[in-house]
Amino acid sequence: MKTSFRTIALVFGREFRAYFATPLAAVFLLVFLALSAGLAFFAGGFFERGQADLGPFFAWHPWLFLILMPAIGMRLWADERRSGVIELLMTLPVRAHEVVIGKFLAGWAFTAVALVLTMSFWLVTLYLGSPDNGIVAASYIGSFLMAGAFLAISACVSAMTKNQVIAFILAAIVSFLLVMSGTNLVLAALRGWAPAFVVDLVQSLSFITNFDRLTRGVLEAPAVILFVSTIVLALWINVQVVDAKKAA
């Protein structure tokens, strides 16, 4: 598959800047910081635990991302369709996968900015105690990968509609299912009738279960593979949707 990295870089640059063209970026970053801090302190018992670790902070990430990543991803394609720019973009000498990758990377880089801003927590725990830096680093990598998986799903859903609100809701629902599939609520409902391998499969696809593994400080291959392959699969579908549904 021929790929122009120049095209990817150009699309990336445009989209990344587009996040900051409106106050949306600032609002998003503030909301993310406030929620991740607030949840860690008030619902996670960050101080009360008396331990210098970031567990309560990361524990909320699957729930935060399942709302925030669709918010980042919803405009990537739906807006192009609504404004008609997709017609201009896809008649430039570019390949669909170059645009898909460029847009995804822009959203992912924006997410990275949000995550980097939260590293003040890390500094606080370093000041207050001695956290296990390996665990923190692994958790950040895991959080970034999981965010990428949510984002790729959101971008893919965004390509299917010209309505950003619909894109947001559909992406949030898909993300919610992927988070919930590891909870006892879902697994217990399955255990009654489904064969064991189905239960195991559903559990193995759970973003929460896999993210928990990473936050324990080991970059476990299955978890990394799950998130990376979710990204690849979602982007591949994204390319097919863009190719097939240009004019709709």
Partner: peptide
Amino acid sequence: IAARRRLGYLPEGAPAYGD
């Protein structure tokens, strides 16, 4: 790709990135 290189196209409604 070769065809599009030689083509300039104004789509209906002149869409552009408003931001």
